[in-house]
Write a protein that binds this DNA or RNA. Sequence first.
DNA 1: CGGCGTCTTGAGAAAACTCAACTTCCGTGG
DNA 2: CCACGGAAGTTGAGTTTTCTCAAGACGCCG
Lengths: 239, 239
Amino acid sequence: MIETLIRKLERRDTLADFERRALVEAVGEVREYRPHEIVVRERTEQHNSHLLLEGYLCRYKDLRDGRRQIVALHVPGDFADLHSFLLKHLEHNLAALTPVRIAVFPHERLRTISERWPHLTRMLWFSTLLDAAIHRQWILSIGRRSAVGRIAHLFCELRARLEVVGLASEERYALPLTQIDIADATGLTPVHVNRMLRELRDRGLLEFRGGEVIITDNAGLARLAEFDPGYLYLQKQPR
Amino acid sequence: MIETLIRKLERRDTLADFERRALVEAVGEVREYRPHEIVVRERTEQHNSHLLLEGYLCRYKDLRDGRRQIVALHVPGDFADLHSFLLKHLEHNLAALTPVRIAVFPHERLRTISERWPHLTRMLWFSTLLDAAIHRQWILSIGRRSAVGRIAHLFCELRARLEVVGLASEERYALPLTQIDIADATGLTPVHVNRMLRELRDRGLLEFRGGEVIITDNAGLARLAEFDPGYLYLQKQPR
DNA sequence: CGGCGTCTTGAGAAAACTCAACTTCCGTGG
DNA sequence: CCACGGAAGTTGAGTTTTCTCAAGACGCCG
């Protein structure tokens, strides 16, 4: 059930049998949520962390005037709010963008792992460091890239992350988000996202429709986005 | 020598004597760097992490056309690249913005800590989660706030972070950065930063000159910035 | 079939950027 | 002690990018 997580971690370092077992034993119940449902509300004490099994989750923050910024998108295999294990509450909401299936990990069991299994602990720590590396890439994107560049980069990143867990081929993957979601993730307005998507289509780089991304010119897209997957730390090495 | 780190951690949870001792024993040499010197270069294998003792460090990424984005600013007490302990290399540069003093921690000794001291390990993990929370706040700022709002928020954040380690009073702190640095951190151009600083001054909120920030209207500044320090997780609790 | 959320397009406005010139500040060397 | 040079800061004018507002089309669910 937690194969995607295992797959994501084993892409970066080998796990021992007992470590895989420890992870499996740490799983509590499995829950499902509908689009727009909030999985974890900001500023409320947490006793569980959530592993995304299926669908898309996002973390977002609101501004007083109602504008919203998605600060992270999560794909299956992501331990979306593992950081609440030590932060104890979140400063943002965690919500479903599509129908999702989620595995719940009680903090108490994560604590046991952290007391008993140093290497597995480092791997979990690593996975939160990966989140941070992705955050930094988003800061660069939003801070310095043009609107098309940002969107192109996001689609490249999602392809790479989904590929790790076997959910994307070289040229396509499912992404049942709205243009509004893309706008909130890239710091743009929905109207402008719409125009930029048209531009990407007109340039023959990709199509985003019907909840699917079809990359028609991978090299051209990566060039436009200045995409380099180095920040996803895909090398397998002792950690 | 590592009092600022201790202070930062103990603000969030109690450390036992043996934990403080373990940290002290993990310190290697102390180094100094001049402004603009690179402490850690991207994509090079790392065997040490660096704790900032004095001065300001930044992490930045470059785009092909030469534009730069600072993805993190570090104040004394920050374990600037603790994440290289598990990432093994960085996807950005770590550089001095001012003259800095830095304590070097060999990864080997951090590994020993992670094998022996679960709670101290969690505290170090926590400190990297704090970095990520700050990254998320920057994503919100850069993605959705106006230029003045972004700058105002940055100055609020730095005040709060410096106060933790005793380097800021209610209304002032040393910040010997250039307007160019502020521009790179906020995703703006230096020219626009200059105009926005004038606006902040004209509105009687703060002055930034001579390497010092003087907050003349804390409440007004926080209101403009929509600043809420919740994301800095300043509560002391078991972690 | 109706209604609502999303997508699309146009037109005009606002925010931030670019370019350029000039000033100020500071450190260095004559 | 002063002159010089370079980096940083300041200001103006014009441009570009992105946003706002608004209207209409599309598509899916009840």
